[in-house]
Design a protein around this nucleic acid. Structure first.
Lengths: 233, 233
DNA sequence: CGGTCGTTTGAAGTGGTTCAAGCCTTGTGG
DNA sequence: CCACAAGGCTTGAACCACTTCAAACGACCG
């Protein structure tokens, strides 16, 4: 077995654990979902995983980052949510123009496959887990709305970073006050309703205060306590 | 039969039509839901229909306005969504502090009742309609996020008014370029992430341009075409 | 008729935007 | 291995949208 393959299986194992732990799937069935969904789908950075208006096609992310976004008439984009390893995501079924896009190289399973291939008894349980995951994801839409209310740029960023930190921590991707964040400042701007320039300045503020430093696709010196103070509701 | 009772039945009939038309319930079952859910629940303005963290309890609004809101530590509120006649609404199941609140006097049916009282065969269909309605409602969360992106106050207001106009039109509450809007400017501010003062100024702008006038709980002189131009994506 | 709540208006301050230029980082080809 | 190009980040300066504070006005209710 190649080193690449080994690493691959490791990431599947970790994601399977997360699937059963977070969405109430029995460990056996989580493993079975992996079989049923194989092979892993790979999407390059920037590719559209699921176009707007297409069938929902729930995906289970093994590694990489995705976002739900809409491209607006003026060429700007609105990012509604980020998806990361361990998450179950899909494009919105009804929206005119909300697509699921890969921000990095993304490996994922197509849970639609798993469901159509699975036995009758399995389908029900898988569907329930998918529904639970999507419901959980909807909570994040509420948080996103709350983030965009009347607050300063630094508060919005602190809030988003804290959420992403916690979600990454759940799947073991936080190490020593740091975590991967392969987003450009433009992505942050599109998610938080701010200009790129101001994102840059606000990140500088956080950096100077020693609360979080974002460079080269990684956050370091992440100080959760002080960041949470900033954006406490 | 009293005049009040008559009006009441009229509004139930209208809502039942909307229920079957919008959420795919057969007319017969829609009527049956009314029987199963009786009596109508009435909530006074300002009362909490469903507290944060309580069981979801989906409600079917016959008349009046509701909103999903969260009260923040600083005493401010964030409004996530408005619910009006014909809608199926509920508090979010998981959120820490997102409650369903009556903005006006609200008459509604408790669909939880209908489901627990209904026959096995009926339950499935009702549950499917409720799910369809809630999915449809989730679309509105996306619209709300898009509304809060980098846009001016006038654009946000125009966008919200247009959405509410269209939803009210669906249930026959738009008449002659006007519709009820029993919201204070503070409600608009809490929903749109703006200060009350600026809502007042922006409404003045719309009024002066002859695109929409909000007074005494009603919008008049609503010019959908021009308002949509303002907030076209 | 007075009190309360909602709306309107003014004046001053500020946080964020825009435009524009320069820099750093990464990837590519000679 | 270096040179160049492209994309992303940073900084400054000017401007404007929105906020805050404060006061007055209007509508509704007991």
């Amino acid at each position: 077995m190649s080193v690449g393959q080994q690493r691959h299986d490791l990431s599947i194992g970790r994601a399977a654990n997360s699937l059963s732990r977070r969405f109430g799937l029995s460990p056996a069935l989580a493993a079975r979902v992996c079989e049923l969904s194989a092979p892993v789908e790979r999407y390059p950075p920037g590719s559209v995983i699921c176009a707007a208006g297409a069938s929902p096609c729930p995906k289970w992310i093994l590694s990489g980052w995705t976002c739900e976004m809409r491209t607006l008439l003026d060429g700007r984009r609105q990012i509604f949510a980020f998806g990361l390893a361990g998450d179950i995501v899909r494009a919105t079924p009804q929206a005119q123009s909300c697509a699921l896009v890969a921000l990095t190289t993304v490996d994922c399973f197509d849970l639609g496959q798993a469901m159509s291939r699975g036995a009758e008894a399995e389908r029900g349980e898988i569907a329930a887990a998918v529904q639970a995951a999507l419901d959980h994801g909807q909570e994040q839409r509420y948080e996103q709305i709350a983030r965009l209310r009347r607050r300063s740029a630094v508060e919005r960023i602190a809030d988003l970073l804290t959420e992403l930190h916690d979600r990454l921590d759940e799947v073991g991707l936080v190490q020593n006050r740091g975590f991967p964040l392969p987003l450009t400042q433009e992505h942050l701007a599109d998610a938080l309703g701010l200009s790129v320039v101001h994102i840059s300045r606000s990140l500088k503020t956080l950096r100077e205060r020693g609360m979080a430093a974002l460079r080269f696709g990684r956050v370091t010196q992440f100080d959760r306590t002080r960041l949470e103070e900033i954006c406490r509701d």
